[in-house]
Design a protein around this nucleic acid. Structure first.
Length: 929
RNA sequence: GGGCCCGUGGCGGAAUUGGCAGACGCGACGGACUUAAAAUCCGUUUUCCGAUAAGGAAGUGUGGGUUCGAGUCCCACCGGGCCCACCA
């Protein structure tokens, strides 16, 4: 990497006790070891001997890292520094602070690495964790490492599996709006309080009963069209597919029917949406989740068609029913399948078969590329528009998706652009039925709300009604006719939860020869990952999970696997589930495990959970890229556990904060391609040369990445400047939430500040403290103001301005002389959350034995914050012309009098008549002439 | 295509509810110390007119508006970013 702009402290020439990088490094190592051996940051749980129940709690949590082989770069810890400042601050404010850290250690990268190197993912992951831990420790975080967790520890994933089993053992009672144990459903069915689609429970045979129950579970097996990524050799959740490509790696994704484990997250759509109003989250993230859940109101409508069938559709615009001139089914629609299997006499199904086959094999990227091009084939049957009585054709087209609604639509080419494009291409009838109320809307396809027209010819007439009213009329009519009903639908789909990969949690379930599933009993958890040496994906037309390679492990008996003998005789041959859970599983509940990481008889100790999480995590800091992935999944798990009585709050994360991205310089050739940083020479501040070619390149700002070689390692920064400087610089760059560029030139600014602070207190020659006997009045007031500013800035997560206040105070104190011991103590304490090492060192030099991290935050004397007089600007017609000094409590009349008497104002106004004087006490005077 | 966010000196960025735009830091320039350099310290630093003064003018992407007063509120546009995207 490029050299720092200024090289601090050339050896041998500086005073022996100056705050230099080497002095910083020495004292940082010393305090790091001391904090560790003293257990300074260990926080007790309720019930522990040193627990203090009189203190309020503060749970401050980071999104834990995925430990990758590359190690940390300076962008990673930016959020951790923020959460550390907050944690240290609340600790000093007298809170019990839970500030834990752990490792999100299952996942694809380690496994991809294993495919090429043959090194077991466990080995690379353990090594990476060790590196990460060292790097994090150097920065001086106040994590309670006694609570460290890793999702790959069997003691951890045992409970991940256990929670999954709770979901498997639960169903969603839509009448009560929450999940309940499946046993309760079974007993209600047995007691005749419920039936199965009109049939009494006792009329079902055993396999029908089991199939019905399995279908009700929150974790269930389902054959459906999934996102299959051939390159990764696994199915992916919707949330993991971005623009038709895998979120990890950017590989194309196709649609493929597969039998997979699903989570019934859709049952929670409504609550996941409405509870967003109860959390203190960034607006943008709440919007993103709301849009992902995608609530829409409308109706289900049934259309009669040939073959004594009906086609059910969902529409948000029932008011346009008179404009329905054809229908369209998704290629995967069951009716399409049945027609292909048993075509009506005389129909040539070849074009249909061809179209369906083509559509099913296409990658989503291709489908998206030609979105404009609407293609389809006629299904060869017709339906009846119930409103007009008209016979309308039925088509098949891949712009209709099987995954939403019923996989079928009523097409309204007059008021829907997609239907319009399709109708034009295949010359289908278009009938407008909604008039725009605005005159300048003369599009031939009006999609907005308007006034209904052309609705004569049936028992229903809605002409003249505005859209909302017309919708209600149509829905009422449809319900009367028994053709359908009002419906709320969500865009959210059930969560595909199984992966065909190795490096994840195995499912605690087995399959018997009849295809039934049996859970592993709690005392046999965890189901540990079998050893494997070959990690290459199984190449097959019919995708196979990787664990199927572990044949000895795969085929076992019920007793061996740990199925309860009362369910299945121990010698029954069974096959283990060979899919694994996705990388998100472990992160869905780690906020719970931190409360009692060593609890061995429960996933979380109940009392600890009630204490730390009765109102959720107080502050959760992490990247915005998880807005609809981890953050949605974790909310879902938490709600599930809440319904089943295992946790005490409906939401896991009360306040959420996203740290911004750290960018760095990169270099670009004139053709737009990028040049690695180390292949560029800086000739002047605006001229950069690619060394190999001698061509001039442009400096741009880009995300830190290995390929650009513009990644900055925190270890190097700490070596050059010390960890306190790294912390301060990262926080001083700008607001924590903003994305901002790393500029090595700027680091020296905060380093100089620490040096000045040190020099203010310590004699650079002797190392003796230099203190004043008597406090200076002005400085004392400034200190009180600074304490207040720093505490309010830390509370509102504005560390950049907190540091600016500290710099300002230090400069002011330096130019006016010395501080008293008492003043230095207060200054050191308010520095402690931001620059903990230097604060700790000075605190001990002042004679303290215990850590400054455990000291109280200094009190502010409110009377020291108010000045007796203040200076007010006086404007004439909005331009500042003079300033007057008034008593702080002066009333409007007095201020006006003084302003008008001011010599400069008198001179400027002379005999100009004054029309008005605006006086805002404490702020401004504005004279209007 | 839809939704959301952001545009402030050479650079990173300040500016509680509309009330002195540019805090603080970097860089730059000048000075002190030094044989010299580094480090450190002091001063200047939005632009323009003016003399390096006094004083004045312009100024927060562009153009309008509301207001005694707009970086902040409203409308339109330009530029950048993020999210969603055949969701019926």
């Amino acid at each position: 990497m490029s050299e720092p702009a200024t090289i601090p402290d050339p050896p041998g020439t500086t005073p022996p006790q100056r705050y230099t990088a080497s002095l910083a490094t020495d004292l940082e190592r010393h305090w790091r070891e001391r904090w560790e051996s003293d257990g300074t940051f260990r926080v007790p749980n309720p019930g522990d001997p040193d627990f203090d129940a009189s203190r309020p709690k503060y749970y401050c949590m980071d999104m834990f890292p995925y430990p990758s082989g590359a190690g940390l770069h300076v962008g990673h810890p930016i959020g951790y520094i923020g959460s550390d400042i907050i944690s240290r601050f609340y600790r000093m404010k007298g809170y019990n602070v839970l500030h834990p850290m752990g490792w999100d250690a299952f996942g694809l990268p380690a496994e991809q690495y294993a495919i090429t190197t043959g090194i077991h993912p466990a080995d690379t992951t353990r090594a990476a964790i060790k590196t990460y831990r060292q790097q994090l420790d150097a920065i001086g975080f106040s994590f309670d490492w006694s609570r460290e967790i890793a999702t790959i520890d069997p003691d951890y994933y045992r409970w991940t599996q256990w929670i999954w089993l709770q979901a498997w053992n639960a169903w969603f009672d839509h009448e009560q709006g929450h999940a309940r144990p499946v046993d309760e459903l079974i007993s209600e069915l047995k007691a005749g309080k419920r039936d199965v689609e009109g049939r009494p429970w006792k009329d079902l045979d055993t396999s029908e009963q089991q199939a019905y129950i399995d279908d009700q579970r929150l974790a269930y097996l389902s054959e459906q069209v999934v996102n299959w990524c051939p390159r990764l050799g696994t199915a992916l959740a919707n949330e993991e597919v971005i623009d038709g490509r895998s979120e990890r790696g950017g590989h194309p994704v196709i649609r493929k029917p597969l039998r997979q484990w699903m989570f019934r997250i859709t049952a929670y759509a409504d609550r996941l949406l409405t509870d967003l109003d109860t959390v203190d989250w960034p607006e943008s993230t709440r919007t993103m989740q709301a849009e992902w859940i995608g609530r829409s109101e409308g109706a289900d409508i049934e259309f009669a068609c040939d073959l004594q069938n009906t086609i059910r559709v969902f529409t948000t615009r029932p008011d346009t029913i008179f404009g329905v001139t054809f229908m369209v089914l998704a290629p995967e629609h069951p009716l399409v399948k049945s027609i292909l299997a048993d075509p009506p006499t005389g129909m040539d199904v070849a074009p249909l078969a061809r179209y369906v086959a083509e559509a099913s094999g296409r990658a989503d990227v291709e489908r998206m590329a030609d979105q404009q091009e609407k293609t389809g084939v006629s299904l060869g049957i017709s339906a009846i528009n119930p409103a007009t009585g008209e016979t309308i054709p039925v088509w098949v087209a891949d712009y209709v998706l099987m995954g939403y609604g019923h996989g079928a639509i009523m097409a309204v080419p007059g008021h829907d652009e997609r239907d319009a494009a399709f109708a034009k291409r295949y010359e289908l009838k278009i009938r407008p039925v909604v008039k725009s109320t605005s005159l300048d809307d003369d599009t031939d396809c009006f999609t907005g709300d308007g006034i209904a027209m052309n609705s004569s010819g049936s028992t229903l007439s809605i002409d003249g009604q505005v859209s909302a009213e017309a919708c209600n009329s149509v829905i009422d009519w449809i319900e009367q006719q028994g053709l359908g009903e009002r419906r709320v639908r969500y865009r959210l789909r059930d969560w595909l939860f199984s992966r065909q990969r190795y490096w994840g949690e195995p499912f605690p379930i087995v399959h018997d020869a009849e295809g039934r599933t049996w859970p592993i009993s709690d005392d046999h958890l965890p189901v540990t990952l079998p050893p494997l040496e070959d990690f290459a994906p199984v190449e097959s037309e019919d995708p196979q999970p990787l664990l199927a390679k572990a044949t000895d492990w795969l085929h076992t008996t019920a007793g061996e696997a740990g199925v309860d003998p009362s369910l299945l005789p121990p010698d029954t041959p069974v096959t283990r589930e060979s899919n694994t859970m996705p990388g998100w599983a472990g992160s869905c509940w780690y906020h719970l495990r931190y409360c009692s990481p060593n609890c061995s008889d429960r996933f979380v100790d109940a009392e600890a959970e009630r204490y730390w999480l009765h109102d959720g995590v107080d502050l959760y800091i992490g990247g915005a890229e998880h807005a609809v992935l981890h953050l949605l999944y974790a909310r879902f798990w938490h709600k599930m556990l809440y319904d089943l009585g295992y946790v005490s709050a409906p939401e896991p994360f009360k306040k959420l904060f996203h740290q911004g991205l750290l960018t760095s310089w990169a270099y670009q050739r004139s053709d737009g391609s990028l040049v690695p940083v180390d292949e560029v020479e800086e000739q002047s501040s605006d001229r950069f040369i690619e060394i190999a070619t001698g061509d001039s390149v442009k400096r741009i700002i880009a995300k830190m990445s290995k390929s650009l070689r513009n990644v900055i390692n925190p270890d190097e920064v700490i070596e050059t400047w010390g960890a306190d400087t790294l912390r301060l610089y990262e926080m001083y760059m700008g607001p924590l939430e903003a994305s901002k560029p790393w500029n090595p030139r700027d680091i020296v600014g905060v380093f100089r500040f620490l040096q000045r602070l040190w020099r203010l207190v310590v004699d650079e020659q002797t190392g003796e403290l230099q203190l004043a006997e008597q406090p200076d009045e002005t400085i004392e007031r400034a200190l009180h103001r600074t304490v207040r500013r720093v505490e309010t800035d830390i509370e509102r997560i504005a560390f950049n301005t907190a540091i600016a206040s500290l710099i300002e105070f230090t400069n002011e104190a330096t130019s006016s002389g010395r501080l008293t011991a008492d003043q230095v103590e207060r200054l050191v304490r308010i520095m402690a959350p931001l620059a903990p090492y230097i604060a700790e060192e000075l605190w001990h030099r002042l004679g303290h034995q215990s850590s400054v991290a455990l000291a109280n935050w200094p009190d502010v004397d409110e009377s020291m914050l108010v000045d007796t007089t203040l200076e007010l600007p006086v404007q004439i017609k909005g331009k500042v012309r003079s300033k007057i000094t008034v008593a702080a409590d002066a009333d409007e009349a007095t201020i006006q009098e003084m302003a008008l008497a001011d010599a400069r104002i008198v001179e400027l106004i002379q005999d100009t008549p004054i029309r008005k004087v605006i006086v805002v006490p404490g702020r401004i005077v504005n004279i209007i002439t």
